[in-house]
Design a protein around this nucleic acid. Structure first.
Length: 380
RNA sequence: CCCGAGGUAGCCAAGUGGCCUAAGGCAGCGGACUGUAAAUUCGCCAUACGUUGGUUCAAAUCCAACCCUCGGGACCA
């Protein structure tokens, strides 16, 4: 890997912004890099149950890119947010244990698996960060004073909740806390899935008004956090509405995404090779003539295989099915799927084997921590 | 603390004294059909109705107490 100092600014910008669904404030990036600042990144993760591919591979791929671009990467293990959001039963003891053990181990292993540097990845525990930290709570009030109740209510989708649903008041602390996290961690780059954009947009909106913890560049000018949003992997199950009506895409997106609460829709880092094969074999995978936009198998192949490794996808096939084949790009694979020269079964098994290979180092690390894994299972 | 609504399978939900050894739907599981899934189709899937007592020949269905959820209110004024 080329050290970041040897990369040009456009090369670094390209690494930071590639393979994303959205970058807000991309134009501000070269300016910051030209100042020679060490950019800091952060992503906050709730400590819910098992880690899935969305976190393990999608998030960590981007962390790897950022590391390669010379950005300092940090993960906020958001135990308070988990507590506020009633995950893991809101049991703080449980949350802490899983966060300290399984999450850190699993995320480091995942980062290593996609070619990043696990040792320079920093973990910050929410409760440690907030403890005896008056400035945090001052900044919290500062953020709250610069946004509105309505805005906060509308942003609860970042925590997987809908505006209409009834909830305890504590839930409303979550979005502003997330915004404060960005500033208090001095994160020039705020990272999340597309579902996190509401919080990031609030952060950018309040950036200029903050008096407690504004972010500034080396010239003292206020920086708005640059928001980078990753693609949300499609769930493996058939969408509730098929074919998908483009008009209703906004609302359907949420239901279509891979979700921890629907185990069949997701692959977890803990899954055994056979479980991975089975889940992928059972996955919804419409033929090309029904459209290729909402096909989870193609979606995963693109985002987990092609965007992740330069080698592309190697598929083993029986001679009577055309023999082994190697795809170097998503375009060529899609073309083959469209013209029928690549059969679904072969695509599925190719993807499954690709993922199994990719995740092998993670499984190895988990196997070395049998006690931790047993504790996890006991706590879930 | 008061008033109201409600607690039936993983989820939604019918049933208000015997025909309920609990309808239906979704999800799930197994099979048929497809070299995948989906669609279609066949089969499986609560001895149990918030808890504990009581009334009755007979209760998910009536009564009592308690627990919990949701909405509203009271207290503070």
């Amino acid at each position: 890997m080329v050290p970041a100092e040897q990369l040009s600014i456009p090369e670094r910008v390209a690494l930071i912004t590639r393979n994303l669904e959205e970058v807000i404030g991309a134009d501000e990036l070269p300016g910051l890099l030209e100042q020679g600042m060490t950019l800091q990144h952060y992503i906050g993760l709730e400590i819910s149950g098992r880690l899935h591919l969305g976190t393990g591979l999608m998030v960590m791929q981007k962390v790897r890119d950022l590391q390669q671009a010379g950005v300092k990467c940090r993960i906020l293990l958001a135990d308070w947010h988990t507590w506020l959001n009633d995950k893991l039963g809101g049991d703080r003891e449980k949350i802490r244990k899983i966060g300290m053990g399984y999450f850190q181990t699993g995320l480091r292993a995942s980062l290593a698996a996609v070619g990043g540097d696990p040792n320079s990845l920093e973990f910050i525990f929410g409760s440690d960060f907030y403890h005896h930290n008056d400035r945090y709570w001052e900044a919290f009030v500062d953020v709250c004073k610069n946004t509105t109740l309505n805005r906060i209510v509308r942003s609860v989708s970042i925590m997987g909740r809908s505006e209409g649903e009834s909830m305890d008041f504590a839930k409303l602390l979550y979005p502003p806390m997330q915004v404060v996290d960005v500033f208090m961690l001095n994160s020039h780059i705020a990272h999340g899935g597309m579902d996190q954009r509401k919080a990031h947009v609030i952060a950018r909106d309040v950036a200029n008004a903050l008096t407690i913890a504004p972010m500034r560049d080396s010239k003292g000018k206020v920086i708005k956090p640059i928001a980078i949003h990753g693609h949300l992997l499609l769930g493996l199950s058939k969408p509730t509405e098929w074919p998908v009506d483009p008009e209703r895409l906004r609302e359907l997106r949420t239901q279509m995404k891979m979700s921890k609460s629907k185990p069949a829709s997701a692959v977890f880092l803990n899954d055994t090779p056979d479980e991975i094969r089975k889940k992928i074999r059972k996955a919804f995978c419409p033929p090309a003539n029904e459209g290729m936009d909402f096909n989870p198998i193609l979606d995963w192949t693109e985002h987990l295989i092609f965007n992740n490794q330069p080698d592309g996808l190697f598929i083993e096939r029986k001679p009577e099915n055309g023999g082994n084949i190697h795809f170097k790009s998503m375009e060529s694979l899609k073309a083959a799927y469209a013209d029928g020269s690549l059969h679904v079964m072969d695509l599925k098994s190719g993807l499954a084997e690709g993922l199994i290979t990719l995740l092998a180092p993670v499984r190895k690390i988990f196997a070395e921590h049998a006690e931790m894994m047993a504790e996890l299972e006991a706590l879930l």
